[in-house]
Design a protein around this nucleic acid. Sequence first.
DNA 1: CTGAAAGCGCTTACAG
DNA 2: CTGAAAGCGCTTACAG
Lengths: 359, 359
Amino acid sequence: MTPVKVSLRSGAVKVVTDNKQVPNHSRSHRARPTMDDVAAVAGVSRGTVSRALNGGHNVSGPALEAVQRAIRKTGYVVNQHARSLVTQRSDSVAFILSEPQDRLFEDPNFNVLLRGCTRALADHDITLLLTIAGTEEDRKRVGRYVTAGHVDGALLVSDHAGSPLLRELKGRGLPVVTCGRPLGHEREISYVAADDRDGARQMVSYLRSRGHRTIATITGPLDTSGGVDRLAGYHDVLGEGDRRLVVSGDYTQASGEAAMERLLAQAPDIDAVFVCSDLMAAGAIAALRRAGKRVPEDVAVGGFDDSKVALSSTPPLTTIRHPLGRISGEMVRLLLGHIAGEPPAAVILPTELVVRGSA
Amino acid sequence: MTPVKVSLRSGAVKVVTDNKQVPNHSRSHRARPTMDDVAAVAGVSRGTVSRALNGGHNVSGPALEAVQRAIRKTGYVVNQHARSLVTQRSDSVAFILSEPQDRLFEDPNFNVLLRGCTRALADHDITLLLTIAGTEEDRKRVGRYVTAGHVDGALLVSDHAGSPLLRELKGRGLPVVTCGRPLGHEREISYVAADDRDGARQMVSYLRSRGHRTIATITGPLDTSGGVDRLAGYHDVLGEGDRRLVVSGDYTQASGEAAMERLLAQAPDIDAVFVCSDLMAAGAIAALRRAGKRVPEDVAVGGFDDSKVALSSTPPLTTIRHPLGRISGEMVRLLLGHIAGEPPAAVILPTELVVRGSA
DNA sequence: CTGAAAGCGCTTACAG
DNA sequence: CTGAAAGCGCTTACAG
């Protein structure tokens, strides 16, 4: 480690230690040790260090130990870019939220899904990158980013039909799994979804069984599978002579409130409403209350999601539970399989009626 | 494009097209075109393609056009790993939330901050990676990730004193900017903070000016700068003979509720309380209401943040506004400067009293 | 303005 | 079990 002065052709002087140039600190980063540094300290070749790092196969006990000591001593951390360049893998996947950012924070489903995916990926030592693509411009940036090799695959949440993002990812050959049916791409893209249609059937059947006759529905956006499938379930149950009252919201509380007001104006005699998310149901209840209606005595309200809001709402919501934990687990499983070369698949998970006070 | 068979020494036969190996599709990805493909199509060298991509300096008009055409034709996207390996830059920064994930979704401050940073970075074509490091294990993983060269710097939000994460990032020489004073590291780490102490002073002075005598406070966690600085402001204003009533929360609504209950048990004659976040203030109001106290008639409540909750609360909160938009802008500015080699700096932004109904 | 060449820091057959 | 060498896909002095 004796510093040695070496004069360069230009006349400048650099200080050299052990035949290696002293790192310059101009970029304010301390120069990072490389695998060669580790190899030198450990007294083995770079290849052995690499093997020690990647599972330790074909490395003798003493060599392994020497490498580990050298890593500790030098503070070595692998350079992911170099590794990825040769492995063609980045060991990270994108969680793409194709929604305005506010939705992320308002909708409790995303929270649960995000946590579930992070955890499932962590088991495989894969990092999750959260990307929010609310605007068209964001979606372009995200498209460029994920196709530049930054990630091995993408979990796409809440994409709307016709969005160019899905098409682009697919076109680039990036493994993708969507949450919810990818409308119009069901055959080429893997997805995991709750059985929305059946859940809706369960709820509307339940409302009828309680004697309600004029059952309205507040749907989600009709360019998402949750929107269309739950609406389909509603129609499945209603008969020939039944009045159909349909208004759409966008899953936010405010939209539920507005939708309920419109329904009330359309048909003041409504005695039940199936609302396609708990958050919108909370909004609907607020609107009903303002209109002087009691819940559930005058109007029964059924929600969807069985999220936190269902419990904190007054009265607590009768709702449909979908297994978000399992959904995230299956999404990760499918994506990793896809990355490993397996063909696409769809997973549909059952939903369940939860009866509480609102209906 | 005529395929040519070439026999190799080993006796195996590879099919070669135009002297380039045919990509194999085993990984289920379509093989990505490289810069060499673009160069071949454009009829220029790889260096010229690279220059065309990076600002277009020293590239003739016709060459530039040829390259652009070739890029469109081949669908070329740069391989970030290869680029980063030579530039030593990744053009992305981490937004590290050192909090349990739930906080992200409950606290509206994070939302605003995240959006502000994303936007400010987008102007520089830098991607923001959201990383949530709630548990010790997460923090380790994140530490490894960001120091593996994945990002050029980190925005650290809500780190608690003594957390090893900050130390590790700093030790690795990674440029870091924290939101709020990094307790114990003020001199080495750049940070942006609201003037919490002065904000607290403004609020407590206001409460006194309204004639309140027994003023309690509900603080944030005392291992964060927001926690200690706002408490210091409270003490600054109170005089020798004043009673000091201090209980700590963790910024969640539930903790505010519990803290208020404890205060009420301690001193039933409280006539004002300065709560160090709007969310906790909403909790405090719920507790007061349950105890039969009117707000602000019996007990005046002052919040902090001027977040959404301040408006949706009943009554709307008198609170302290801090300029989150400017905070995120300054954080990004400082971080980019740091990455470019500038020394650390601290930015303190003024706060402002907003009077509404709760006090 | 342009091309040939070196090199960024790794992994992985290959030969021993 | 181990080392030497090729190569992943770029950028950037360097010489022309």
